[in-house]
Nucleic acid binder design. Structure first.
Lengths: 352, 352
DNA sequence: AGTTTCTGCACCATCGATTGTGCAAGCGAA
DNA sequence: TTCGCTTGCACAATCGATGGTGCAGAAACT
């Protein structure tokens, strides 16, 4: 009946089998046949044959002809992190519901890699590109623009394309305030007891650091110079920052503002092998939400960025972009310690 | 100089500009020009023009002609989980180092979606497909086989394609033993104080459950019937399982074997809003490693599956597959509480 | 000088689908 | 009967790159 090891059926095969021309077959299979005034019975015949012979469209051929592919790209800094992986999860849902195919790749926060990755995706004629947390969004823009690829920045803004980012200043303000207030009036926090770890010189870090400074000053009346330890987005560099701090001061601060969950992993590394009691008085604020991180043995106040809202807004913008590049802020949410929130996985059905 | 809004340069454009034929241009650009005895100076001219005009290969056209795409697919159940996201991260590294383009998609543990996703990827002529944790690996195989697509199962085995999975039995044995031994001899664990939560009727769960039973019997001398609460791979169903248990017994077990980090999130949800003291005596073993999970306020012994080894083995197998489908076991590793291990992100460079 | 062997490249079919255009047959109206 | 409109489809160019084949001219050899 069917050919077994044979190659896949094409419209030409179906054309021979049905006695119609390839163009007719094509029209029937891609749904434009009514517009082309193909008889219903002809269509049925062809659809039947397609079914029987397991026809599937060669999307590379279609893409070549149409010069688009049905692929929608998401470029992440990294996969292995709950913030970005929830981004990927949410993104996939949106893309699928539009009948397109999501493609998720990471570019390691390397500007060079970011551009190469964008170029590769362009070579596959992807239809849209969502650029998350790029180190050099405008560099990616320079690649997308001449190719006519619609793109949008998420999480870290660029100057040349629309951006949807979380309101880092407000989030960091809330977080700093929550950390300070957590101590109450019995043993109030002193300005030199609250430090920020993590971050580099990107827009998000700058905003967060600015809010951190401002809020400390506003609520604690002062803000020593050395309150910020940049340590990039690397657990190990953050670990070393903690070790250095510890060597110098003989202890950790009473309170920490940690710039991201990746930096928080640096704290974990610092904790490993040291006695749990060393951290029993610690209060931590972490910009990013991780369900497990929320249940550590000390209070961890977290900021959850509203991924769903960011992605939704990004789709809106990419569909009908305003004339001039704008940046949209999405309000993040303060999460109290010991909170287990629902995430994108909760929309999937599962069986026991 | 350059055209700005103009379409992308093609080999035909370069052909005109250089005075060579398209096939010569093609050969030069794809590196086969020595084989075709193209003069070095001709090649240089063309490469210069390509550079100047920002030529990039249209990979859909190449893919159509060659009937492969340079894309390598990874199909995950979900993104938003450290096990799978580390899989994605590791996979990307391997694919990139081979000069190909990784494509990561998730299929929600839905057999139907899994097959559809495979079909879509096939339509793009992907070169290889790595199928991770599929609910119906053989269903996916049925789709890949006739298309001649090389594929391999990871994490959950199939009968029809090679599989690389973690040694679930041994992992669960170690984990169960570690949980039991954690109690020492002062207040040794009774068989009815250790319960397993999570899992469904898949190969991994079955192995783990079998090892759980066997080890309980071996070390504790008995194993009550109701020691296992399946709750799929869903935090919410797991939450309900804990609630039900709690209602029935008025307390949690002293010790828990949790089938995966996703189920562990169900425990988090149970913890949320309940006093921390309720869990102060708890000992948990979790099959899966999550750095934050390792530092919860009670001892959490984890099993880390060796993702790097699994991916490496999978690439070996997909490159030169043995004749008959085989399943390869990769030893997982027992992780003591409060461990912050390095992960795939640590291979990336970062700046502070 | 005549023949063979290289060099260096051009020609052209091909991958599979899309889409603008053209045209024959059928039908109704004049 | 003839004109004109509609119906239903076929034709053929096209998207961009690839690779088998063939062929001129130069070089090497007898």
């Amino acid at each position: 009946m069917d050919q077994r090891v044979k190659k896949k059926a094409t419209i030409y095969d179906l054309s021979v089998l049905s006695g119609s021309s390839p163009s007719t077959v094509s029209a029937v299979l891609n749904g434009t046949w009514r517009k082309r005034r193909i008889k219903e019975s002809t269509a049925e015949t062809i659809l039947g044959l397609a079914e029987r012979h397991q026809y599937t469209t060669n999307l590379q051929a279609r893409g070549l002809r149409r010069s688009r592919s049905g692929l929608v790209g998401l470029m992440l800094p990294v996969h292995d992190n709950r913030y970005f992986s929830s981004m990927a999860q949410t993104f996939e849902g949106h893309v699928r519901s539009r009948g397109q195919c999501p493609v998720v790749v990471s570019a390691s926060r390397d500007p060079e890699e970011e551009r190469r990755t964008a170029e590769t995706l362009i070579s596959y004629s992807i239809d849209q590109l969502f650029i998350v947390g790029a180190t050099d969004p405008d560099g990616v823009h320079e690649v997308c623009e001449p190719a006519g690829l619609k793109h949008i920045n998420i999480d870290l803004p660029g100057a040349k394309a629309h951006s949807v980012i979380s309101d880092n200043y407000e989030g960091a303000r809330m977080l700093t305030e929550a950390i300070i207030r957590h101590f109450g009036n019995d043993a109030p926090l002193r300005p030199d007891e609250l430090f920020l770890f993590g971050g580099r010189n990107d827009h998000a870090s700058r905003e967060r650091i600015a809010a951190f400074h401002a809020t400390k000053k506003a609520l604690l009346g002062a803000d020593p110079e050395d309150g910020v330890q940049s340590s990039g987005y690397s657990p190990d560099i953050t670990l070393r920052a903690f070790e250095t701090f510890y060597q110098r001061h003989g202890k950790l601060p009473r309170a920490l503002f940690i710039n991201s969950s990746i930096n928080m992993e640096g704290l974990l590394r610092f904790m490993a092998g040291r006695p749990a009691e060393m951290f029993s008085e610690l209060v931590v604020g972490c910009y990013d939400y991780d369900p497990f991180g929320s249940f550590l043995p000390f209070p961890v106040i977290m900021v959850r960025q509203n991924v769903e809202a960011m992605i939704t807004k990004a789709f809106e913008l990419i569909d009908e972009p305003p004339m001039v590049p704008q940046t949209f802020l999405i309000a993040p949410e303060l999460i109290q310690p010991r909170s287990a929130l629902k995430g994108p996985l909760d929309t999937l059905k599962d069986i026991a």
